[in-house]
């Protein structure tokens, strides 16, 4: 009896410790985001008080209003959406073809192709941003949004292929063989069998590529110098360096720009894991 009571007490202590630990972790993760929301919805004079008040006082939406008033923020968000859409179209179509090639066919050079993808995924873009800048300068592709999409696509395609590959390989061989005997060509198999069966993974590639492009700063700031063509990342960064931007406006911008990927990523979590780990963890 005493033993049981002792172990029950121990379990209670362990459980409480777990809740406390999880609570601390959640606070650490969520506090910066919470603080962004608080700052975005309260007037600057409250924000600049010391000591800071940890909950919103006089909440209002003036920050968002100013964002669209003084700065072409709406335009910048639209630019980002445009660049990201084109990136998504390129990435999804190229990744489907590449993943089909790598998961259905044995061909010479396949290993080299896989290494090229891996290398592209791992290489810091910053190492070659200047040669790309020079090439774009020569070809008059600077300040062209679709040309920026092309760069984004080049660097996110490996992730797309790694997300699609295990999904493609999970379709039983018998299904494809049966289709092949029935006279389906390889492209028809891709279109009629593989794509419909793997649509969740394809949607995941779409989301990942859209927000990879949406989140990029380095390529955009190097290739785009006209203010009206800025994507939101570059626009926000330029607002940040202007000393007279009210803090409420700035944080409203961060909120508006940062929230969409957070919401959508929650739905495609497991695909991101497989793309990130290059489909390598099978055991």
């Amino acid at each position: 009896m005493a033993v049981v009571r002792g172990s029950r007490k121990k379990v209670f202590v362990m459980n409480s410790a777990r809740y406390i630990f999880v609570g601390i972790i959640c606070t650490l993760v969520i506090f910066p985001l919470y603080w962004m929301v608080v700052t975005a919805i309260q007037p600057p004079n409250v924000t600049l008080q010391y000591p800071p008040v940890l909950y919103p006082v006089h909440p209002n939406l003036l920050g968002f209003k100013q964002l669209f008033h003084g700065n072409p923020m709406g335009r910048w968000l639209l630019n980002s959406g445009f660049v990201a859409s084109i990136t998504t179209i390129i990435t999804v179509s190229f990744s489907i073809l590449g993943a089909y090639s790598i998961s259905y066919f044995k061909w010479r050079g396949r290993a080299a192709f896989a290494f090229l993808l891996l290398f592209t995924q791992m290489m810091p873009e910053a190492l070659i941003v200047i040669p790309i800048f020079k090439i774009y300068d020569r070809l008059h592709l600077l300040n062209q949004l679709p040309a920026l999409s092309l760069i984004h696509a080049a660097f996110v395609i490996p992730v797309g292929v790694w997300i699609l590959r295990p999904a493609f390989e999970s379709i039983p061989k018998e299904v494809n063989e049966a289709a092949s005997i029935d006279g389906c060509t390889d492209m028809a198999i891709l279109r009629k069998i593989v794509l419909p069966l793997t649509s969740p993974a394809i949607i995941a590639v779409g989301v990942v590529s859209f927000f990879a492009s949406w989140g990029d700063y380095l390529m955009a700031v190097t290739m785009i110098s006209k203010k009206e063509l800025y994507p939101a990342s570059v626009g926000l960064a330029s607002t940040m360096s202007q000393l007279d931007t009210p803090i409420q406006t700035l944080l409203s911008g961060a909120l508006l720009y940062g929230l969409p990927p957070v919401i959508l990523y929650m739905f495609i979590q497991r695909f991101v894991i497989s793309g990130l780990t290059a489909g390598a963890i099978k055991g």
Partner: peptide, 19 residues
């Protein structure tokens, strides 16, 4: 909740932390 910071774009994180 644990997915949120990873999905949050760099520039937005930068603005928050500078603040």
């Amino acid at each position: 909740l644990l997915t949120a910071p990873w999905a949050f774009p760099d520039i937005a994180s930068v603005i928050i932390f500078i603040w």
